[in-house]
Design a protein around this nucleic acid. Structure first.
Lengths: 348, 348
DNA sequence: GTGATTTATGATACCGATAACACAGGGGAG
DNA sequence: CTCCCCTGTGTTATCGGTATCATAAATCAC
């Protein structure tokens, strides 16, 4: 009822003009009080401030942004919000940006680059000041669109290749290589690898490459790679199913490296049920270093990734760029670390 | 370099006027093609569509929103993005809203209502079409601000009291009551309660009330309630520390009810270290039904909350309201359920 | 065949702010 | 005592769209 069709104003607070009128100045002066208070005479400023308070004035950034050509919004697209895998990255971005008065606009692409493309399209309609993406895999149209728009873009969670603009991440290939080498060092030989669908993102592909390279370097044959294809089924049960299949199809496997802790934890539980001892009969390793891997028993060996740090760095890179600091290094490799826990600690 | 100070246009695509010129029409016709294609002659429409494609036109919603009086944005504030406690709710909101073409603007309040207030203030500057909050605890200024603005507001994760506008949640009081009763039914008698700081939100307070009521009804004395005050330290270690303190200060405690699985899981690990058997010597119960509680051993008894469902429902409530359907029920109790697992399964 | 409708498009005014420049008054330099 | 510059505020144009009403052409009824 209150929200008639005609008026934008229904229910909304005062406009800048109304504040101006009440304070006996023009809206330009009000605008200055809001954005450059030091340029306004203290007495005038007080009068304006009082008028704003009295009217409950809340500036309209749609209008301000339209006029100034900046929305004060940074958009981020992550594959999913669940499992805090990427949520930590978002927290990092948000922390940094909020301090600078920028807002964070979030959407999740469900791991699909076509979804990502349509999301980017609708995000660009809001004229964000910058964009944060996950990974380097984007459709051709996406890359073109982004280049055309010319706003800062930070790709996260991977390094290398050719970023659209800036990138902050770590080498998924090296991480998988290091973990595989760690398993080999622990005495495992028939090491299987369970991956998410690698067509959909380069992180999965690079991890597979790292795994294969490490096996090859050690002169070990790589048991068939198992691909978990269930869409969006990032659940422990998926890992449990994978390891059961694996043990059936390749009974001599003595370790499995999963590309997510979520899967690995499910595998540990499945092993317990099946009476397979971890780490003695079967080594299990994961990826991401989620809390879940610290509380399962045996505790999970995993790859720690700098999730929040990537977010914070992305935020800082954006701020620097918006402040005009082009140049400087715009690609960061934040590294990773291997967390060795009980699930691969073979008692020789 | 490309982004000069003066021009909004640098690097950005064409404007509606440019599209119009190229198609030999006025921008009004272009606007119609974008929003009400059926009202435009098919031939004209094709010409306009072609012009848009040729110029890579991306509409500017800041401008459209300013003119039309709606930003197409819904803002949500959650205490944190970590642990997927609230992330699931966000996914639910996002799912529903995205389909309707609305964007989701996210921020996290770190469990503080003063932070929430300042965030709401800056969020309102973006003139969201609706707002989703977590819980019913807000500062007076917040409530006033929201009422003044008159946009739909959905409060989630709790029911009862007086919502600012609409609410969807469950009864934290009843949930805690039910869990406490469940512990009593399982044979525990000296049941302690570990809570987050209850001044900061009503969920914690209501849970404490539910616990106390259940104990009183069973004629049991309530051991001192332990408050976890560490700011933002929602980590298993916090729960571990809490139960160690508790066992020292009240050695006869035979069960502990934590208001988060994160704490409860830490307690289970601490018990294992201390040689305290769970569930025989000590029952442990949590809240939230996180994945972490399903993989710990013994598995964790907990309260399942409809996190994603609340989000979806909130989304639908907003859509209904925006579509003009005022009235109808605007308060929903989505319930909870007690998930009884090993951590309280006493073998009598 | 003429007036009444409908369909398709244009003209105008505005949404609520900001940028850029104009301008009045006060203070210091010479 | 001028001239010049600085400070503080107002004026004007514009950002990129949308709402509303006007208008021309096409369709219709009788």
């Amino acid at each position: 009822m209150a929200s008639g069709k005609k008026s934008v104003r229904s229910g909304f607070g005062a406009t800048m003009s109304e504040v101006a009128e009440r304070a006996g100045v023009t809206k330009m002066t009000v605008s200055r009080v809001v954005r450059h208070p030091e340029k306004v005479n203290p007495e005038t400023r007080d009068r304006v401030t009082a008028a704003m308070a009295a009217l409950g004035y809340v500036p309209n950034r749609l209008a301000g942004g339209l006029s100034a050509g900046s929305s004060g919004l940074v958009a981020a697209i992550v594959p999913t919000l669940r499992h805090s895998i990427f949520a930590d990255t978002l927290e990092g971005i948000g922390d940094v940006l909020n301090e600078a008065g920028l807002g964070l606009f979030v959407s999740s692409s469900t791991y699909r680059s076509d979804v990502e493309e349509s999301q980017i399209r609708s995000i660009l309609e809001r004229r964000p000041d910058a964009l944060v993406l996950t990974g380097l895999t984007h459709t051709g149209a996406t890359r073109e669109l982004l280049r055309g728009f010319g706003i800062p873009v930070v790709e996260t969670w991977e390094t290398g290749d050719e970023p659209v603009d800036m990138a902050v991440g770590f080498s998924n290939r090296e991480a998988a290589h290091a973990m595989t080498a760690e398993l080999i060092r622990s005495g495992y030989r028939r090491i299987a690898f369970v991956n998410g669908p690698s067509e959909s993102n380069e992180r999965a592909r690079h991890r597979a490459e790292g795994y294969l390279a490490a096996m090859r370097e050690a002169g070990l044959p790589a048991p068939p790679i198992q691909i978990v294809n269930d869409e969006a089924a990032i659940r422990p049960e998926t890992g449990a199913r994978a390891i059961r299949l694996l043990m059936k199809s390749a009974p001599d496997v003595d370790a499995v490296f999963f590309t997510s802790d979520v899967f690995a934890v499910g595998a540990i539980l499945a092993c317990r049920e099946l009476g397979v001892r971890v780490p003695e009969d079967m080594g299990i390793a994961g990826f991401h270093d989620l809390e879940i891997g610290r509380v399962v028993s045996p505790t999970l060996t995993t790859v720690h990734v700098p999730a929040m740090e990537m977010g914070r760095k992305a935020g800082h890179m954006i701020l620097a760029r918006l402040a005009g600091n082009r140049g400087a290094s715009e690609r960061y490799d934040l590294g990773f670390s291997i967390i060795s826990r009980e699930s691969t600690r073979r008692k020789h």
